[in-house]
Structures are given as structure tokens and as C-alpha cells.
């Protein structure tokens, strides 16, 4: 019973804050609402008993990525006063594009099958031991390859940020 109330609370928070991310005029507020949205999503993971995923979601998204976002916003000192005025053509184009995207999404979602909703809470698939065994057992090679991908992305970022490239 309490799980259901928590689910509704988290869902409401997530959607409400996601809307506020878009509607806030101040970019700092947008970023802060996005953090709250991440927390609500992490709460959903916890409700599904995926504790590792929930904790890592908070650490990586709310703790690392959004800190860098806010860092950049603060450095650039973006606020509504310095925001450049946008012409009407851009606004109309944005509305049309958004509308078309919405149309495509609705069309795609109408055709989806909902499938069977299974009970996730008791098989412990999100627990860290099981996840570790799966990642370092059955999916060892793809997991290692994805780490190489991360490494190359990191080296690329360091290379791009170097000032003197000969």
C-alpha cells in the first residue's frame, strides 16, 4: 500500500519537476529542478528493488554530471537579462518542430504493446551481488569493451582541451 503511495508521489514529483525544467526562465533553476527529477527517478529504481542502479543514478547524475552543468552555468553567468532576444520565426519553427515530434511520439506510443507486468520485487535482480555476477560473468566482454570506449572518450576530451597541439 505504502509502495503505491510512494510511486504516485515520486511520479508526480518527477513529471512536475521535469515540466519546471522546461518552463523555468533562469537556467540555474532549470538545472536544480532537473536534479530533483533525477532524485525522483532514483526513488523509482529503489521501489523496483534496483538499489545499485538507484544509488549510482544519484552519484553519477545528481552528484557529478549536474554539478558540472551548474558549474558551467555559473561560470558563464547565464541569467534572463543577458539571454539574447529570439525572433518570431525561430519561435514558430520551434513550435512546429516540437509539434511534429509530439505527433511522432504519440503515433509510436499508440501502437506499442504494454505486455505483461511482472512482479519484480522478490527475485532480487537489481541487488548488487547479482548485478556484479552478471556483468563480470555472462556480459564480461561487452562490459570491458564499453570501458575501452569510455577511456577513448576521456583521452579525446583531454586531447581537445590541450592548448598547444603541434
Amino acid at each position: 500500500m505504502i509502495t503505491q503511495y510512494l510511486f504516485y508521489f515520486l511520479t508526480f514529483t518527477a513529471i512536475f519537476c521535469a515540466l519546471l525544467v522546461v518552463f523555468s526562465k533562469n537556467p540555474i533553476y532549470s538545472a536544480l529542478y532537473l536534479i530533483v527529477t533525477f532524485f525522483a527517478t532514483a526513488g523509482h529504481y529503489f521501489l523496483l528493488n534496483a538499489q545499485f542502479l538507484g544509488a549510482v543514478h544519484v552519484i553519477v547524475y545528481a552528484g557529478a554530471i549536474m554539478v558540472l552543468f551548474i558549474y558551467v552555468i555559473m561560470m558563464l553567468n547565464l541569467n534572463k537579462e543577458v539571454e539574447p532576444h529570439k525572433s518570431n520565426i525561430i519561435k514558430i519553427a520551434a513550435t512546429v518542430c516540437g509539434g511534429i515530434l509530439g505527433l511522432v511520439l504519440i503515433a509510436a506510443l499508440r501502437e506499442t504493446e504494454l505486455g505483461e507486468i511482472t512482479e519484480y520485487s522478490n527475485n532480487g535482480i537489481g541487488l548488487i551481488e547479482k548485478l556484479g555476477n552478471v556483468l563480470f560473468g555472462a556480459y564480461m566482454v561487452p562490459f570491458e569493451i564499453s570501458t575501452v570506449l569510455f577511456l577513448s572518450a576521456m583521452v579525446g576530451a583531454v586531447f581537445l582541451s590541450k592548448k598547444n597541439i603541434h
Binding site: 552519484i59 552528484g63 554539478v67
Partner: peptide, 23 residues
């Protein structure tokens, strides 16, 4: 059973207090 991850999560969120206050 994710005690250390919980700690790291709280620590990484803790920076917001200083960032938001300073900004």
C-alpha cells in the same frame, strides 16, 4: 547493503549546499 554507495551519494550531493549558497 549499499552503505558505501549511500555515503558517496550523500557526499556528492553535499557540494550543492556550498554551490547554491555561493551563487
Amino acid at each position: 547493503n549499499i552503505g558505501i554507495l549511500y555515503l558517496l551519494g550523500v557526499v556528492s550531493v553535499g557540494v550543492y549546499g556550498i554551490m547554491i549558497g555561493g551563487w
